[in-house]
């Protein structure tokens, strides 16, 4: 049974923890708004990019000499997994759920006899994966110093990936990140980057060109060769921005929970503190009274 002093110390310590988690929650909420804004601001570009790509690939369909970024290298022996996580912890299951998804994929691929390589963006993913896949992790991109993720950061990662691809370092590239749905829900997602999957979705309807034909300048294949590497950078940027918003969302709800738990704990501790104090007073009184009675009697 802890004594009164212990209990008092516990209460103080939990109270200060609660202060910290509450502050973190508020910081996350403020950052979330910013991250969400920038994730949303980046959408028009990738949407338009997708439309242009779809148009182009439709025009290119059935032609020879498609870029390997689009058509693949013709095999799928070596897989590169780009795992995007956060640089900081204390955000609930955010990092571990992405790492878990990547881990499962890596195990599945290894089971099929494929080679797996990994590129970690963000320290936490690296920490989670290095024990099991340490020899397979080829690079770690540290974005700790980056306050606001921009196109330049994504482009840097993309050029690393593309260089590796050109050297025949891998055949298939998959990007792991967490899609931001709302503050409570973030969905860990795996997206295939190379070979590019062009969505022939219904929402990107072909444009009515009034019978005119697109003029390409330079030729289609040259544009496509220019566009595809750029598309990779854009996809990575999008993933990083989504991740940023997801991270803050996850941290916010995790810290909200922590604050609430701390509150409950304080209540419980205060209750037992008061009970014990009362019990102590009662027993002291009994001692005094029985002492007095012994004298009188």
């Amino acid at each position: 049974m802890p004594n009164l002093k212990d209990l008092k110390n516990r209460i103080t310590s939990v109270t200060s923890t609660q202060k910290i988690t509450r502050a973190m929650q508020m910081v996350a909420a403020a950052k979330l708004r910013k991250a969400q804004e920038s994730a949303e601001a980046a959408r028009p570009f990738s949407e338009r990019m997708a439309i242009v790509l779809a148009n182009l690939s439709a025009a290119m369909e059935g032609r020879e000499g498609a870029s390997p970024l689009m058509a693949g290298t013709g095999k799928d022996q070596t897989h590169l997994l780009i795992v995007c996580t956060a640089e900081r912890g204390l955000c609930g299951g955010f990092n571990s759920s992405i790492a878990k998804l990547a881990r499962l994929k890596a195990i599945e691929l290894a089971g099929q006899g494929k080679d797996v390589k990994m590129l970690c963006v963000g320290k936490k993913g690296f920490d989670a994966l290095k024990r099991e896949f340490g020899s397979k992790i080829i690079d770690v991109v540290d974005l700790k110093a980056v306050k606001k993720v921009g196109f330049a950061d994504a482009n840097g990662i993309a050029s690393t990936v593309l260089d590796l691809f050109e050297d025949g370092g891998f055949d298939v590239c998959t990007l792991f990140y967490s899609e931001f749905k709302n503050v409570i829900t973030q969905i860990p997602t795996a997206q295939q980057l190379i070979p590019a999957t062009v969505e022939k979705s219904d929402d990107t309807e072909p444009l009515d060109l009034n019978g005119a034909i697109y003029e390409y300048e330079p030729e289609e294949d040259e544009i496509l060769a220019d566009l595809l590497p750029r598309n990779i950078a854009i996809q990575i940027l999008r993933a990083l921005l989504e991740n940023g918003a997801s991270e803050q969302g996850a941290r916010m709800s995790a810290m909200d929970n922590a604050t609430r738990n701390a509150g409950e704990m304080i209540d419980k501790l205060t209750l037992s503190y008061n009970r014990q104090r009362q019990a102590q007073i009662t027993s002291e009184l009994i001692e005094i009274i029985s002492g007095a009675e012994a004298l009188n009697g």
Binding site: V52, N55, L209, Y214, E215, Y216, E217, P218, I223
Partner: peptide, 19 residues
């Protein structure tokens, strides 16, 4: 500033895709 030369675009321009 197209990669193969500048070009001006007015309304009702023919569809073009250029780097």
């Amino acid at each position: 500033p197209g990669s193969e030369g500048d070009f001006g675009v007015f309304v009702n321009h023919a569809p073009v895709l250029s780097t």
